[in-house]
Amino acid sequence: MVESRLESLRLQPDASSDRLDEWGHFFASSYLGDRVDPLPYERPFGGDMTRRWVDDTLVVRFKTSPYRARYRRNSDAGDYVGFLASWPPTGEDVQWRDDTPVMSLHESMGIWDNAAVAEHSVHIVKEQTVLFVPKEALAASGYRSGQTYAHAVSPQARPTARVLADLLSSVLSQPAAMSAADALAIRNAAVGLLIGAIRPEELADSKAVSDTMRQRVENWVNGRLPFGPISPSDAAAAHGISVRSLHRLFDGPGRSFGSMVRSARLECARQELLTSMSTVQHIAARWGYSDMSHFGREFKRTYGMTTTEFRALHHTHPQAG
């Protein structure tokens, strides 16, 4: 289920202690932590934060007074990397680990592994935008947890990083309501641009990105098959790509989008033959086969036996009538 949630919180300089605690929790969860250790706020302290989940990615923008904070990560935080996407730079931002500064982002963007308990400090009033992306989405780019805790990304050397910053700013300015197709298209664009910012050579042949997108399409098809026919235009729209790009994802010897859908449909029918007492005719019709002869030929060609032989082998017998 693709989702897009937009949330915001504003902290006035004269806020109460309870409101300040509320800000701390909101701030921590926006960095995928479950809490922030007591912050040495200098009063008056103010802030304005907006965040948006776009499928499995999180975009956060905030403006605050100076601070330094230590986060306690929740169990899911380690599955993400963070990318500071503010451009142009609006103030010094330092990442800390074990009381040692590991990355200064005075004039750069940067990426960090979100698994470690870390400190984060901002020395002047600033506004910044951060993108959190699942590590599995970046695995194809060559990023591996543990390679480095944090490193800067030069926006001058990585035009994709500047484009990504513009995209994220636009995402947060959109109305709260967003269709699933739009959310998925934005998510895929953000991940692709981030891969380009980290490892631009991966985009040269686009194989890594294509593999990731192809897997997402296949997962989407498997989830939609029970609800009826699937067209290339439906799949392309759901993933924010053109029909031509969709077909290119499955362009290979003996492979096409249509053949992938047919294989998935036949496998669903096979699984139901294995677990259901329904008749073969009922199962075939459920998975889009109106011609029983065609279904029988496809099943035998793929699995090397007839549906009757398959059920006999697995001791599955249909209901009478």
Rank of each mutant, 00 (worst) to 15 (best):
Y80Q: 15
Y80K: 15
Y80S: 07
V81E: 04
V81R: 03
G82K: 06
F83E: 09
F83C: 10
L84W: 01
L84K: 09
A85F: 02
A85R: 00
S86N: 08
S86Q: 13
S86P: 00
P89L: 02
G91A: 13
G91N: 13
G91T: 07
Q95A: 10
Q95V: 06
R97A: 15
D98Y: 03
D98L: 09
D99A: 07
D99E: 10
V102N: 09
V102R: 14
M103I: 01
L105P: 11
E107L: 03
E107M: 08
S108E: 13
S108H: 11
G110R: 03
I111A: 02
W112K: 05
W112M: 07
D113T: 01
N114H: 04
A115K: 10
V117P: 05
V117G: 07
S121W: 01
V122N: 06
V122P: 02
V122G: 13
I124R: 15
Q128A: 02
Q128V: 06
V130Y: 09
V130M: 10
L131Y: 04
L131F: 02
F132V: 11
F132S: 07
V133N: 01
P134L: 00
E136P: 00
E136R: 15
L138D: 10
A139H: 13
A140H: 09
A140F: 10
S141M: 02
Y143W: 15
Y143I: 12
R144D: 02
R144W: 11
S145I: 02
S145E: 12
Q147G: 13
Q147W: 15
T148W: 02
T148E: 04
Y149N: 03
A150K: 05
A150C: 09
A150L: 11
A150T: 09
A152L: 04
A152S: 09
V153F: 08
V153L: 10
V153K: 06
V153D: 08
Q156T: 08
Q156K: 01
A157K: 12
A157H: 12
A161E: 07
A161M: 02
A161N: 07
A161F: 00
R162I: 03
L164P: 01
L164A: 04
A165W: 08
L167N: 11
S169L: 07
S169Q: 15
L172M: 08
S173E: 14
P175D: 07
A176C: 02
A176Q: 11
A176Y: 07
M178T: 12
A181Q: 10
L184Q: 14
I186M: 14
R187F: 05
R187E: 06
A189G: 00
A190K: 02
V191F: 04
L193C: 05
L194R: 01
L194F: 01
L194T: 05
I195E: 09
G196P: 10
I198W: 10
R199K: 08
E201F: 03
E201A: 14
E201Y: 02
E201P: 10
E202T: 15
E202C: 13
E202W: 06
L203M: 14
K207L: 14
K207G: 03
K207T: 14
V209K: 09
S210R: 14
D211F: 06
T212I: 14
T212S: 14
M213Q: 13
M213C: 09
R214Y: 08
Q215R: 07
R216Q: 11
V217P: 05
V217C: 11
E218V: 11
